[in-house]
Simulated assay, not measured.
Amino acid sequence: MPGTPLHQILADHADAVRTAWLSAVADELRGRTSRGELEREQSDIFDALVDGLAQGATSLDHPAFDQLRGTLSDVSSARARLGFTPRETAVAVFALKEGLYVLDAQVRDDVSPLLRLVDALGLFTFESFAAARESIIAEQAEQLLELSTPVVKLWDGIVAVPLVGTLDSARTQVVMEKLLNTLVETGSDHAIIDITGVPAVDTQVAQHLLKTVVAARLMGAECTISGIRPQIAQTIVALGIEFGDISTRASLADALVDALRSRASTRNEVLA
């Protein structure tokens, strides 16, 4: 004789299961979130679980559990952004077992499939949390990259990009975009790329610098690379790196003087 369907078992004993579940989660989180918020999350997860089971779903990848997976992903992402730990996030699902243990003592039917399903839900929650946290870290890294790459206006028509740290492909793209946007916004025709804060220049770094200069020139701006220290100059010579007709200077001050002279010379030629 077939047993009671799992969704019916959960529905019939919903109050007992959810009470034990909520108590376990609240004890673990210890005020990290309000009881009302926990009840809302719990209700969404529980209802989606019962609905999926009612449609014949037995594994988490079943289409009937689409809403459940979406709910778990939303909860995981929210917890990641609020700074919860993986344990604090996963307990929102794994604590459901406390309710199922109560259920197991009250019914004759086998609820072990539900326990296995909760394990799958917990693993999915943990994976969703990890993916969300990686996304957050990537966003923060991008924001820090933008903050660490300012483009400043030194004079009318002259902007500078003081670089500090390693110059890789990702950062080159940020530098290029910010420089080009600033050239357009300010109407500048001179750009100084200062590498005083770049610890070392190798062939790859040089290529990144050249790409940035070419991009600026396409916008009609002349570029100067400043911050060529003795050690950097020796390295560039040893590696056989050629900057071609790109102007280089030892310091940002020297580059600014050159840019001002160039602008004055251009202005005099126009007046003449």
Rank of each mutant, 00 (worst) to 15 (best):
R32G: 14
E41T: 09
T33C: 07
D27R: 15
L38Y: 07
T33M: 09
G36Q: 07
T19N: 09
L38K: 00
D27L: 13
L22N: 11
R40N: 04
A24D: 05
L29R: 02
E39D: 13
A20N: 08
H13C: 04
T33Y: 00
S34C: 09
G31E: 04
E28K: 13
G31I: 08
R40K: 14
T19K: 13
W21H: 12
E41K: 02
E28R: 14
E28N: 08
A16W: 04
L29P: 01
E37C: 01
R30Y: 08
E28P: 00
R30E: 15
A16F: 07
V25H: 02
L29E: 06
V25K: 03
G31H: 07
S34R: 00
V17D: 03
R30A: 15
V25Y: 01
R35K: 12
A20P: 07
V25T: 13
S43D: 14
V25E: 01
A16G: 01
S23K: 08
H13L: 02
R30V: 01
T19C: 06
D27H: 15
A16T: 11
R35N: 00
L29W: 01
L38D: 10
R32P: 03
R18I: 07
G36D: 12
A20K: 01
S34V: 03
S43P: 05
V17F: 02
S43G: 11
G36S: 12
L22S: 11
G36N: 06
E28Q: 10
R18P: 02
T33N: 02
E37D: 11
R18A: 07
E28M: 10
S34A: 14
G31R: 05
E41N: 13
E39I: 00
G36L: 11
L38E: 11
A24E: 06
L29S: 10
E41S: 14
E41H: 12
E37I: 05
A26I: 07
R18T: 14
A20M: 07
Q42Y: 02
V17H: 06
A16K: 08
A14S: 14
E39F: 00
L29H: 04
R35E: 00
A14K: 15
A14L: 08
A20S: 13
L22I: 08
S43W: 01
A26D: 14
V25C: 04
H13V: 06
S34P: 12
L38V: 09
R32Y: 01
G31T: 10
R40E: 10
Q42T: 10
E39V: 05
E39A: 15
A16E: 13
R18D: 03
E37Q: 11
D27W: 11
A14M: 10
R32A: 11
G36V: 08
R35M: 04
R30C: 12
E41P: 12
G31Y: 06
R18C: 10
A20V: 01
S34F: 02
H13R: 13
L22M: 04
V25I: 15
L22T: 10
A20F: 03
R35Q: 07
S23E: 14
L29A: 13
V25G: 02
A20Q: 06
R18L: 11
R30N: 15
